[in-house]
């Protein structure tokens, strides 16, 4: 199921040296507006703390 995919993805990313925390997995119901806002806020903070992604990022030219 999706959750198992995420669990392994996170672990595999870490293993190859990419911060697994760049992926975030949680449950939010369509009715949980507040929680949704919280999740996005928290996620943004987490990603910001990690800084810009520079691994597996494509540059053109």
């Amino acid at each position: 199921m999706a959750r198992r995919k995420f669990a392994t993805l996170k672990s595999f990313l870490n293993y190859i040296g990419v911060e697994g925390d760049r992926t975030i997995f949680t449950w939010v119901s369509a009715s949980e507006g507040d929680r949704w806002a919280q999740v996005i806020k928290g996620a943004t903070e987490k990603i910001k703390a990690l800084g810009p992604a520079n691994k597996m990022v494509k540059t053109i030219g």
């Binding site: 199921m1 959750r3 198992r4 995919k5 995420f6 669990a7 996170k10 672990s11 975030i24 997995f25 949680t26 449950w27 929680r35 919280q38 999740v39 806020k41 928290g42 996620a43």
Partner: peptide, 19 residues
């Protein structure tokens, strides 16, 4: 196939983000 199922009691939860 392991990705086709889920074990409520044994699967770890630590990858789930809870703000």
């Amino acid at each position: 196939p392991p990705l086709g199922k889920y074990d409520e009691h044994h699967d770890k939860q630590d990858f789930i983000y809870n703000p």
